[in-house]
């Protein structure tokens, strides 16, 4: 498993060659498109501290991949309803019912994965590319999925632009937003749905298991250097694009898994920035 790619390599002419393949152009396009949603929605995930919820939505979405295999459709199309359902259910359970949020998330997380495993078990024959949905394989993104990612990007950007003042208000001071007449529960659920759609996009790039890293790391780094939410979104998108492309290039060079490499590149950058901050603080306090 794992769709191992053994590329014909010529170390002397690597740069021209890397774009010679159609799958590589698709991979670059997918990276750039995913980075848009990733930076915008990741910013809300970080400032609103809902990383764990986002992880829950992503893992529950595995049920949708199983459903996709079972129905014989594009698994990504199975992920959309499943992750939206997970977003609404986790959001409503933690807001309305008296279930502790982490309990609700934990339950959905595991049950979603379990449902996925059962569906795949019920599907006759072998489940091709299952590994790539769990851990991502950006080198196998078909043109149809690129269009799907593009469409979801447009939807996310449009909704965030239309409701930017409400999303800002519930992020910075939810109680004040409520007092101002904003339907805070409604906008919170909408935000969780946008996270769910971003998960769909990122499944192709880094896979379900590692979605949470791309939703949090670029935005967390961007927060250190930003003075406004739109600025943080732009910087997070740029960082996400950089990590994706750098990881892609590195994985090509070293012939290792692309999704995992992207995450490691992002993680190393995050640690460097945080170490830099710590050093700066300790130097200033000396």
């Amino acid at each position: 498993m794992g769709a191992p790619f053994h590329h014909p390599k010529n170390p002397d002419a690597m740069r021209p060659e890397i774009f010679a393949f159609e799958f590589m152009r698709h991979a670059v396009a997918a990276s750039l498109l995913a980075s848009v949603a990733c930076g915008i929605i990741g910013t809300y995930v970080v400032v609103k501290r809902i990383g764990f919820i986002s992880g829950g939505i992503a893992h529950t979405a595995f049920g949708g991949i199983g459903l996709g295999y079972y129905l014989g459709i594009n698994p990504l199309l199975g992920v959309i309803p499943f992750s939206l359902f997970a977003a609404l259910a986790i959001g409503l359970l933690s807001k309305k019912a008296k279930v502790a949020e982490d309990t609700a998330i934990g339950a959905f997380w595991a049950v979603g994965m379990a449902v996925g495993v059962i569906f795949i078990g019920l599907t006759p024959g072998y489940a091709p590319n299952l590994f790539s949905y769990l851990f991502g394989n950006i080198l196998t993104v078909p043109p149809d999925d690129l269009w799907l990612i593009f469409f979801l990007d447009v939807l996310i950007v449009l909704l965030v632009w239309l409701f930017s003042k409400e999303f800002l208000a519930i992020s910075v001071d939810e109680e004040y937003a409520e007092v101002s007449g904003v339907n805070t529960t409604g906008f919170y659920l909408l935000l969780l749905c946008l996270i769910a759609l971003t998960v769909v996009i990122l499944v192709r790039v880094v896979g379900i298991v590692m979605v949470i890293a791309l939703l949090t790391i670029p935005a967390a780094i961007a927060r250190t250097f930003s003075r406004s939410l739109p600025g943080m979104m732009a910087l997070a998108s740029l960082l996400s694009a950089f990590f994706s492309l750098a990881g892609l290039w590195l994985s090509w060079q070293l012939d290792i898994a692309s999704g995992a490499t992207i995450i490691v590149v992002a993680g190393v950058a995050f640690m460097l920035v945080e170490t830099g901050k710590l050093l700066r603080i300790s130097l200033l306090n000396r």
């Binding site: 208000a169 904003v182 406004s228």
Partner: peptide, 18 residues
């Protein structure tokens, strides 16, 4: 969150939300 990237002016702009 003290790290929240928002300026004083944008914070006060929230008062116009209602």
């Amino acid at each position: 969150d003290r790290d929240f990237p928002i300026s004083v002016r944008d914070m006060v702009l929230m008062g116009r939300l209602s």
